[in-house]
């Protein structure tokens, strides 16, 4: 059975697509699954530095598509996990140098040999976006609890549905429970009801993300990190495990108030 091809997209830039691909890809591979991540952000290559693989790049995805190298030559194996690979973006090409049909062929070919093909989508809704979604059967929308990210997510969901890509799940990134509790951030329920697509995970906001990116080691390698645990749960849900998603409902905040009164908060 061919593997799953999943595009990670958002519309807005800087909401955590690349972070999600790196951590989810690593988390899936840590479960023993074979995973290949494609950086489809042509011209703005980033996934390689987040994975700490920037020194190993020889060929890239455009080289593969244009036949300048064999597929295996452009696949960089992860430093820690043997079943995890990256196909980097081209840095010097413009994003119109790839066509959707070529991306679809590449994804289909990879899906024959891997359990998961994760595609890191560029921001925006132009050619680069169309390329990135062309080979995907499933989409993960990344948003943050901010109005502009949510609006762009809604637009992208509409475009995916118009392209007959209807298996869509939501990841809410950079959630700050303190701000939600004091009423200064949209709750995760609010966001789910606005976008009305099924939720697959909530990632807390954390300095750890920046630190792990600085080092080029995905945070899921850190056993104590809450962010790591959140990504691992998403990996489990993708694998069909029934892991409940803790929402930040009012009971939660009431409970925490009670806990505070009794000194347990």
């Amino acid at each position: 059975m061919p593997g799953k091809t999943i595009v990670i997209t958002s519309g807005k830039g800087g909401v955590g697509k690349t972070t999600t691909v790196a951590n989810l890809g690593t988390a899936l591979a840590m479960r023993g699954l074979s995973v290949v991540m494609i950086d489809a952000d042509i011209g703005l290559r980033n996934l390689d530095v987040v994975m700490g693989l920037e020194n190993r790049i020889v060929y890239n995805v455009v080289d593969v598509i244009e036949g300048r190298c064999r597929l295996e030559q452009a696949m960089i194996r992860d430093r820690k996990i043997n079943s995890l690979y990256l196909i980097p973006a081209a840095q010097t090409r413009d994003k119109d140098s790839v066509m959707p049909e070529a991306m679809k062929r590449l994804c289909d070919q990879l899906a024959e040999n891997f359990d998961y093909v994760l595609i890191d989508c560029p921001a925006g809704i132009e050619q680069g976006f169309r390329n990135a979604i062309a080979g995907a059967q499933k989409a993960l929308i990344v948003t943050t609890p901010e109005v502009s990210a949510i609006r762009d997510a809604d637009r992208v969901i509409g475009l995916l549905e118009a392209n007959m890509l209807k298996d869509i799940h939501l990841i809410i990134n950079r959630v700050n429970q303190k701000m939600i509790k004091r009423g200064d951030m949209m709750s995760t329920e609010d966001i789910c009801s606005l976008l009305s697509i099924p939720l697959i995970g909530i990632i807390p906001e954390s300095e750890e993300v920046v630190i792990s990116t600085n080092r080029g080691v995905p945070l899921v390698h850190d056993r104590k990190s809450q962010v790591a645990a959140a990504f691992k749960r998403i990996a489990g849900r993708l694998e069909g495990e029934n892991i409940p998603i803790p929402l930040d409902n009012h009971e939660g905040s009431l409970l925490s108030k009670v806990k505070k009164i009794f000194g347990a908060g």
Binding site: M179, D184, M185, M186, D190
Partner: peptide
């Protein structure tokens, strides 16, 4: 109203 509700 709290800003979170305003945003929603």
């Amino acid at each position: 109203k709290k800003s979170g509700k305003v945003a929603r």
